[in-house]
């Protein structure tokens, strides 16, 4: 369009956006800065805006020895738990939902619609609204403080099934027909055609569910009692003591940086898949 383009109208959006980006970055940057200073510098309230000399010391300490009070678990084991949980949730969800979507789309059987709604309704039951009964069931099954206890109750939800169902509906009917004429049965069709075609959807779902699993809070908070089982998100909560004199902020901030780095790296590194997954799972 031919519209008066002044320097103001040209650069204003960039100025505003950069300001926004700066404000969004600020808390993370200050957390990183804090993680590279000693407790004295932080507690006198005069934290500089640039990193200090304690980077290696603080991170080494937190990764391998932990804090001196509250939870003393080293952070590397929390990171390990978080990875196991995030990958377990993502992979588990993908497997059970791709199988159920395959059954729902490519088979006709009695009660199919009922089964679909049965799964679909679980969208309306977030873990928060049924937290104690679920906890009790997991406890009765002896799954407290176990990885499968952390993972399995979270892997069934309608999102994945709906996403795969939606994708399968876009696969041309003729591909199945050609496969049938090419003497491929259901398993061959699934393995040779459907799964290879679903790769982007699988990857997008993995990205979203990895983040979902990594960021779980209430669930691991309830069902892990041992420090050795806690995830990093739970670990950091235990490092923040309300009587703040006891909080080792440089270590807490180092843990925060370590806790947000993996999912943020996934989002930035796989931005396309992330956006696709987000838009398609939520909408």
């Amino acid at each position: 369009m031919v519209e008066k383009e002044t320097a103001f109208s040209k650069y204003m959006p960039h100025v505003v956006l950069l300001l926004g980006v700066l404000i969004i970055f600020l808390p993370v940057w200050l957390a990183f800065v804090a993680s590279t200073w000693d407790p004295a510098t932080i507690s006198n309230g005069k934290l500089p805006l640039t990193p200090g000399p304690y980077f290696i010391e603080n991170y080494k300490r937190i990764l391998f020895s932990g804090t001196s009070s509250s939870t003393r678990e080293p952070v590397w084991s929390m990171l390990g738990n978080s990875f196991i949980m995030a990958i377990g949730v993502a992979v588990g969800k993908i497997i059970i939902s791709i199988l159920s979507a395959f059954a729902l789309v490519y088979y006709k059987f009695p009660l199919r619609r009922t089964v679909f709604w049965f799964i679909f309704i679980t969208l309306m039951l977030p873990v928060e609204v049924r937290i104690f009964p679920t906890y009790k069931i997991v406890a009765d099954l002896g799954m407290l403080d176990t990885y499968h206890g952390l993972i399995i109750p979270l892997i069934a939800s309608a999102t994945g099934t709906l996403l795969f169902r939606q994708f399968f509906m876009t696969v041309p009917d003729e591909l199945l027909e050609a496969s049938k004429i090419d003497a491929a049965g259901p398993f061959r069709f699934f393995k040779d055609t459907l799964v290879p075609l679903s790769m982007t959807t699988i990857a997008a779902l993995f990205v979203i569910q990895f983040i979902y699993g990594w960021n779980q809070y209430l669930w691991p908070l309830l069902i892990t009692t041992k420090d050795s089982m806690q995830t990093i998100v739970i670990g950091i909560r235990k490092m923040i003591v309300t009587q703040d004199a006891l909080t080792e902020w440089q270590l807490a901030m180092a843990t925060a940086v370590l806790a947000l780095l993996p999912p943020v790296a996934v989002v930035i590194g796989m931005q396309k898949l992330f956006v696709k997954g987000l838009v398609e799972t939520e909408k």
Partner: peptide, 16 residues
């Protein structure tokens, strides 16, 4: 279909 000894060419080709 696989056992009818036929081959089919589809309108949208249906190539994998």
């Amino acid at each position: 279909p696989a056992d009818r000894d036929i081959a089919m060419v589809f309108q949208n080709y249906a190539l994998y």
